[in-house]
Design a protein around this nucleic acid. Sequence first.
DNA 1: AGATCACTTTACAGCGCTGTACATTGTCTG
DNA 2: CAGACAATGTACAGCGCTGTAAAGTGATCT
Lengths: 336, 336
Amino acid sequence: MARVRLIDVAERAQVSMKTVSNVVNGYAHVQPDMRARVQAAIDELGYRPNLTARRLATGRTGMIALAMPEIDHPYFGEMASHLAEIALARGYRVIIEQTLSDAAAEKAVLQDREAGLVDGVIFQPTRMATLDLARLHDDLPVVLLGEIDAPVTTDHVMIDNVAAAFDGVRHLLNLGRRRVAFLGLVDGDITMTNRRRLLGYQEALVGAGVRLDPELVLQARGFDSHDAEAAVESALDRGLDFDAILSRDDRFAAGALTALRRRGIAVPDDVAIVGWDDSAITGYTSPTLTSVAPDKRALATRAFELLHERMHGHHGAGRHIVVPHGISVRASAPGA
Amino acid sequence: MARVRLIDVAERAQVSMKTVSNVVNGYAHVQPDMRARVQAAIDELGYRPNLTARRLATGRTGMIALAMPEIDHPYFGEMASHLAEIALARGYRVIIEQTLSDAAAEKAVLQDREAGLVDGVIFQPTRMATLDLARLHDDLPVVLLGEIDAPVTTDHVMIDNVAAAFDGVRHLLNLGRRRVAFLGLVDGDITMTNRRRLLGYQEALVGAGVRLDPELVLQARGFDSHDAEAAVESALDRGLDFDAILSRDDRFAAGALTALRRRGIAVPDDVAIVGWDDSAITGYTSPTLTSVAPDKRALATRAFELLHERMHGHHGAGRHIVVPHGISVRASAPGA
DNA sequence: AGATCACTTTACAGCGCTGTACATTGTCTG
DNA sequence: CAGACAATGTACAGCGCTGTAAAGTGATCT
């Protein structure tokens, strides 16, 4: 059975195609009886508009792309879920793009792959350099997420990583901890994100009169929780003395928990831990995980708003929006 | 700057549009020098094809939709990740659709929302009845995922839930457990999935000569891990005696762990637990979670293959494919 | 009655691409 | 060297829809 087209409906209802189109699109000035007649034809034939054709005619796709490193990372999963919901409420659909932190894939996101496919892109880059970013999105509206060193020309939504790290460490200091480790550096990955977080970490310690110890900045081999586990074990092996950990994300924090448990070190009594992302993981660990909590809903909302403006012709300079964060206090670093 | 079109390239290279099209699409019979000339024009103008227009002309969209209840559920996140990867390798892109287990949203997936937008849909329904499913996807190729009671006309990929539940319980029985609880029923949600799992659970017990006790089938209020936690606590409150749990998913198992820990019940010594999905959660809990492991990669691969055939004209009866499962043994129910 | 105006509906071009049918060129065969 | 055939390139219709301009329809006013 061939698809029913607009023209089939028009013939059936004895009207022009455009009138059918007007009915389908809820155009105001259509007489009620005419509308009813057309609607009847639509229902009888089971007509449904071809979105691709509509797109070609209007130039709008009604879709936005969300490009992230991994869709099965809890943080990104939650962001995707929020964004899909927000976008849907505003009449947009979301294509989810997985870059796997691959530079080529990230480039592709902004280039040909999106050509004419989406009206805009919300993108969390990890590998692309600032300049490449600036150069690549000629005419495609883009909003960046995360703490990359975003080009000034591009909209960007983030939390204040310095302040968030500061707050996380403060929380630990308030618990009386003085030997706070930073678990977050990954070999060969000196991103802006980490630099900022490290800065906040240092500011908090210095502000509290605690001497900085470079030994306390732990390095992992990769991004998996096992890499964090290994990093913590290795720190313990070399006799590093610490009573708290601020972790780059909840997965790393979970890895740290595992390592500490294996060594019989009590959390939070011996070592308190603050994770990062406030993802669903925080509820599954034992003890549950205190975590730096970016306002994910706000991130998604603001990102969509900025993109929406760009898609509707806004052409100003890049706007850099900071959304709130908090600390979700759970058992691994309880309230003071 | 207006977009560069095919015709602009054609004019620049002094050839017909079709020749440019042939070059862009890698058509074989184009002379090398002609190809070079056209390519040069493409590069100079920075031409990129408009995918929407291509779609309208070819009738193919090159996209498939993946519709699932929640994209931030770890199981679905992993499935989405696999599928995106597989589809990409075969030249398809994936739109991820979140139904939030809403009947209307599920219907929409098969109806107007995807009209002309995607070439096919891979769909994990939870609310839709068999007949609705059968009726709604007239001409849209669809492959179903999960253990719904799929219409015979529709392709369907799943694991053998009876056998998987059987194996999960066997694993617990091999550990010497005899009072095995089933944590999985949710109020007002008597799905086929659960019926099958419950059947496998019963078969395993009966096969081992263990008396069935209806009390051991635990009921939760909702789908959240806290609901599982509450269900287990309530079972403990009423003095239920059990030494093992087979859980409907890993989140529920995590909830059970929390409840047991709070009551000072040792896992796995007092109560062994087997989760379901073998999701990333299994590594974050303490102890780590033994879990029934559907072969997610195989699920995604087979689903895509079936869909691919349908999209290329296959019109036979519904095929119902069973993919392997295993038990990922971890600490919550160690090997015997 | 004719003019005016606001509201409805129509006709048709065109969004950018590819498929089809056909024209052209070059190569090979007997 | 004619004829057959493959390889290569061209012209143009058409995918299904919407935007635009123009035409039609009453109602209201002079």
